[in-house]
Design a protein around this nucleic acid. Structure first.
Lengths: 178, 178
DNA sequence: ACCCGCATGTAAGCCGTTACATGATTTC
DNA sequence: GAAATCATGTAACGGCTTACATGCGGGT
């Protein structure tokens, strides 16, 4: 059911079309929080509009429909956010790969951890650029957008991944006492 | 297809039954990497055994079957680990909630971030205990288990979440110039 | 005029969740 | 002897992926 709230949440920031939502998933949510393709987004939008939790705010060229969050949708989103979640479940293929490293021999292992480290370093650097850009855009009305929250989260998460890779590299080859 | 490799990977560390695998998912993989229920695990094991990438190593009481990784399974796992992945996709409901915070009003937002911070702090403390326990168990043959890798990853990730929450708390109420 | 990107949609099949189902062994 | 835990399984349903499908509008 998270797709529903991801869509409501994105529309809470500003009205958007399905096409734009697909891009927002890719750019801001994909790497850390949630992902959906257009083939899932369009039917979901139609369903939400039928229910009345979102409305068609504008119709444009090429059949484009811009959706806005209705009051009922905002209330539902708030309720979902405030109810304390049960044990949350994560599915993250990259992390799974990292955890399965001990099944490889020393050379393969080292290769993969070094790759993970380099990746974290590169993506971390990319995110710094994005953050500078976002901080340049800030306006008084909207101090923090979810994009900025996501970026900061990403920055810290990549930093953690780098530290983890360093720790793993140092430990992995060593004998038990390490 | 990740379930397949998660199972192969767990069996690479040591032979286990479906029941044990379900527990391993819960204890080590669930929070960061992958999750599966027994209703998914048992059919997968039967499929993998039919294919021959795992074998039944032992049959015990109550119909218990202990599976071991076959050579072909180990080769397949290695191949999967070494091929560089495409853009990986993450689905993490907790993080999604955090990213949607800006849609709430100030009071609700603060409440949720404080909750996230407290949670990271508590789970971080729990993981420190687990790490001490794991480090006490270390044997010379197997310097690092995937459980230890997961624990260290968790430790750093919780630390990052705490830092993120502190940053968000400091920024969120402030006017744009922050 | 052509191409690229915008824009939305559908359908088959696979993956994952929830619920139902059963029974053996150990522990108190 | 009862309860908890071990142990495996199936089926219906819903969510997600992949592939197919179509057409408009803006830029060069």
């Amino acid at each position: 059911m998270s797709l529903r709230y991801a869509v409501l949440g994105l529309l809470a920031e500003r009205p958007a079309s399905g096409y734009e939502l697909a891009q927002m998933f890719e750019q801001s949510l994909q790497r850390w929080a949630w992902y959906a393709r257009h083939s899932q987004i369009y039917p979901e939008l139609n369903k939400l509009a039928e229910e009345g939790v979102i409305t068609v705010a504008e119709e444009g060229a090429r059949g484009r429909r811009t959706y806005a969050l209705a009051d009922s949708g905002r209330a539902e989103l708030r309720e979902w956010l405030l109810k304390t979640p049960e044990t949350p479940v994560v599915r993250d293929e990259s992390t799974l790969r990292l955890f399965l490293l001990p099944t490889l021999d020393t050379a393969d292992r080292r290769r993969l951890v070094e790759y993970a480290r380099a990746e974290a370093e590169q993506l971390g650097a990319e995110i710094e650029v994005i953050i500078e850009r976002l901080d340049g855009w800030r306006t008084p009305e909207r101090p923090i957008t979810f994009g900025r929250l996501a970026a900061e989260y990403g920055r810290l998460a990549y930093q953690a991944q780098r530290e983890w890779a360093d720790w793993a590299l140092e430990r992995m080859d060593k004998p038990a006492r390490g």
